[in-house]
């Protein structure tokens, strides 16, 4: 589904050039659950930003399915990201002045969809995530876990092919974190390709493959041995 060839990213500060990604070559198949790990400053978030098509400053080749993202202009990349990619953030990044339902509707409002269709999609997701009762609440009225749940709902409401998660449980306690990771498994089983960035080994075990970055280099790429994992879906 995704193929990166010799992807590089650097930042210039004065006369100095700092490389955050160096000759990254990576293939992610459809339906995979990939974990990206590494120490701070390794380039994990930078890699995620490239995959999310949020960053334009990289070099190399990026194939999203059959589409050469490296040949697209800014607008075309944004259109592709809007259609095919969903993103979950560590800090949830819900808009405080929108209700739960409105936050979930936000990415849909940027597509050319009729209002009724959007309402239907939001209703489905609220039901699926069992947060119908909370649809009119504001983020400040929810717990951290509930906010992240809404963040995930928002990321998958438009049924993206690829879900990217940047430290999705970084601000949650362990029980909430387990619930979120089980949800990711459920989504992955339903066919969504997931790439997560995490420091947590426990979270990494929910995935099927680990990629390790150090100083911008891809140093490890190995499949995880399958383990039996209790999945409690609420």
């Amino acid at each position: 589904m995704i193929e990166l060839k010799n992807v590089e990213r650097s930042y210039k500060t004065g006369p100095t050039e700092t490389w955050v990604l160096r000759r990254i070559g990576l293939t992610i198949k459809e339906g995979e659950f990939v974990t990206v790990m590494g120490p701070s400053g390794a380039g994990k978030s930078s890699l995620l930003n490239v995959l999310a098509l949020l960053d334009d400053g990289w070099l190399g080749e990026y194939w999203f399915g059959e589409t050469p993202a490296h040949k697209l202009n800014r607008k075309q990349r944004a259109d592709l990201a809007r259609e095919r990619i969903g993103m979950v953030f560590q800090s949830y990044h819900l808009l405080d002045d929108l209700t739960v339902a409105e936050n979930i509707d936000l990415p849909l409002s940027y597509k050319n969809l009729p209002a009724k269709e959007r309402q239907g999609m939001v209703a489905d997701i609220l039901d699926r995530f069992q947060i119908v009762a909370k649809k009119d609440l504001f983020p400040s009225q929810l717990s951290g876990g509930q906010q992240q749940l809404v963040g995930i709902a928002r990321a998958v409401v438009h049924a993206p092919a690829l879900l990217l998660a940047d430290e999705p449980t970084g601000n949650l306690h362990s029980t909430q974190a387990r619930e979120i990771m089980n949800l990711f498994c459920e989504l992955n089983r339903a066919g969504t390709t997931i790439v997560q960035v995490t420091h947590s080994d426990e979270n990494a075990r929910y995935g099927k493959r680990i990629i390790e970055l150090r100083d911008g280099w891809l140093t490890r790429d190995q499949a995880l041995q399958p383990t039996t994992v209790e999945v409690n879906v609420q």
Binding site: K75, A78, A81, R82, M87, H93, L106, P107, Y110
Partner: peptide
Amino acid sequence: TREQAVRAALGAS
């Protein structure tokens, strides 16, 4: 700033 960035990340042109 954050709000605008979130909107852009979610697909706002």
